[in-house]
Structures are given as C-alpha cells and as structure tokens.
Amino acid sequence: MAVAAKDLHGTLDALILKTLSWGPRHGYAIARWLEDTSADELVIEEGSLYPALYRMERKGWIEAEWGESELGRKAKLYRLTTVGRKQLRAETEEWARFAGAVSRILLPA
C-alpha cells in the first residue's frame, strides 16, 4: 500500500532536498521522481509539496528561478543551496537515527 509522504513526519523536506541534490527540478518533476524512485510506494500530495517548497525557499535551503522545462515550457525550477545541502545531511542523519531506533523495536534481531 502506498504511503502518503506527509504521514512520515518531517521527512517530506528531506525527500525534496534529496531529489534536488541530483540537479534543478520543477515541482511536478520532484513529485514524479519521488513516485518513480519509490516505485509508487510513496504518494506525494501536491497540497503538501508546494507549501513545503515555498517554506524551504523562504528558509534559504533552496532557491528558484524561472527556466525552460523539458517540453519547452516556462517552469519554476528549484535548486539546492549550500545551506540546503547542509540541511539535507542533517536530516538524513536524523532519519537514520530514527529509522534505526524504530527498527530495533519493530524488527528485533
């Protein structure tokens, strides 16, 4: 069953940052990439995605510029900033700690 990314508290930001670490993307591409990569196990809701992008832009983790999409249409492209890269590292570590702790409980060796 597919999981809505917003259900994993605080991980949406990390997922978006990770997506952008491969290069600039527009909002739709971010959603698609996450869906494809997780083999549709993760559903990215637009209602959470765009506010998250705007929030992170305000925090300075990502910046946006208008550019050309693959199909030659004007699209708002987001890219990671240096601060965002640092934030991604921090969130990844945080996630590893969290997942490890949860695993130790749910999947005891």
């Binding site: 809701e45 637009e46 209602g47 765009y50 506010p51 992008l53 705007y54 929030r55 832009e57 305000r58």
Partner: peptide
C-alpha cells in the same frame, strides 16, 4: 482531482512567498 484543494494550496504558497519577499 488529484491536486486537491487548489485554492487552499495557492493561498498557503502565496502567504509564504510574500513573507519571503518581506524577509
């Protein structure tokens, strides 16, 4: 339909964007 409440998302984004302009 998949997008959900387009107006609400639009509002939220605009609010955050304008906050960023002020910053």
């Amino acid at each position: 339909g998949r997008f959900g409440d387009l107006n609400r998302v639009n509002d939220t984004c605009r609010r955050i964007g304008e906050g960023r302009e002020r910053d």
